[in-house]
């Protein structure tokens, strides 16, 4: 008999997205541009992170009409964001048959202590993290894909780099620990021992790991890939730039040819202006999105 929603099926879609670019879109027209530029999936949302940041207020799941319109426009997977802990938004997104749910810190959290119990769903989830412990806690809750958070809506890559170095560096250090040291390490990481041991033995997370938050140029995307990301999410970086189609296409090529400096130099030319940046280091603590999630 056919089995739906197994971990292999959930994680399997993420495997197919590897080496690709997932783009934030707010309209069907943007979704079409993203698909034509070579995106492997689109993230349907109400406002891109830089607008959420500028306009403030409560950021929620996108309007189901908008999600349906985007689903009708493109044939690539359509993802959508639910607020942290808002399992009813997730139920609605599953009923709409989105292909992946992003339980995202970019939206205003609905729960200050608990994330969604993702095992209860057939639809797979991707969750953000800033360090290994956070990634493993999300996996324990049933996430089938991880993305490092970065600082969304800034166009500043520094936090994405910090988070990747933290996650991948911690994985490398785990590999050097003795078996009996892993118990205490699991306590430090606030993560289940079995997962900690698996990661220590395998030298990687058990799911596909993308990078998000602050990617604005082809060079940013290739930097993330060279640091060990399986692929990238680009939010405001495309549709807040002066020529979204050209930039989207260039970021896609840079993600495929991330080790080829000649290709990177070629695709980096003639792109017009990137999104206006915002230094992540200049943000007040209460303006940071990366600290949301527990």
């Amino acid at each position: 008999m056919a089995e739906l929603g197994t971990m292999r099926v959930k994680g399997g879609l993420a495997e197919m997205l590897k080496g690709g670019v997932i783009m934030d879109v707010t309209t069907a027209e943007q979704a079409r541009i993203a698909e034509e530029a070579g995106a492997v999936a689109v993230m349907a949302l109400e406002r891109v992170p830089s607008d959420i940041r500028a306009q403030g207020g409560v950021a929620r799941m996108a309007d189901p009409d908008k999600i349906a319109e985007i689903q009708e426009t493109v044939t690539i997977p359509v993802m959508a964001k639910a607020r942290i802990g808002h399992f009813v938004e997730a139920q609605i997104l599953e009923a709409l048959e989105v292909d992946y749910i992003d339980e995202s810190e970019v939206l205003t959290p609905a729960d200050t202590a608990h994330h969604i119990d993702k095992w209860r769903f057939t639809v797979p989830f991707v969750c953000g993290c800033t360090n290994l412990g956070e990634a493993l806690r999300r996996l324990a809750e049933g996430a089938a894909m991880i993305r490092t958070k970065g600082e969304a809506g800034t166009g500043d890559i520094v936090n994405a780099v910090t988070h990747m170095r933290s996650v991948f560096g911690s994985i490398r250090r785990l590999g050097g620990l003795a078996q009996e040291e892993l118990y205490s390490e699991a306590k430090q990481l606030q993560a289940p021992y079995e997962l900690v041991r698996w990661v220590a033995e395998q030298g990687r997370l058990p799911v596909v790991t993308f990078t998000a938050g602050g990617i604005a140029t082809p060079a940013d995307a290739a930097l993330c890939m060279q640091l060990g990301a399986d692929g990238v999410f680009v939010g405001s970086g495309i549709f807040k730039s002066s020529d979204p189609f050209l930039r989207a296409k260039a970021i896609v090529e840079a993600t495929t040819h991330f080790q080829d400096a000649e290709v990177l130099a070629r695709v980096s030319r003639g792109l017009g202006d990137p999104m206006p940046g915002l230094s992540a280091a200049a943000l007040a603590p209460e303006e940071l999105l990366e600290t949301r999630g527990w």
Partner: peptide
């Protein structure tokens, strides 16, 4: 269909007695 319809199932592979798991 979309991802919620993705599945795994046993397949009969021509010339083989043991089924193959198809994802």
């Amino acid at each position: 269909g979309r991802q919620v319809a993705s599945f795994e199932a046993d397949l009969d592979l021509e010339g083989e007695a043991v089924p193959l798991r198809g994802v």
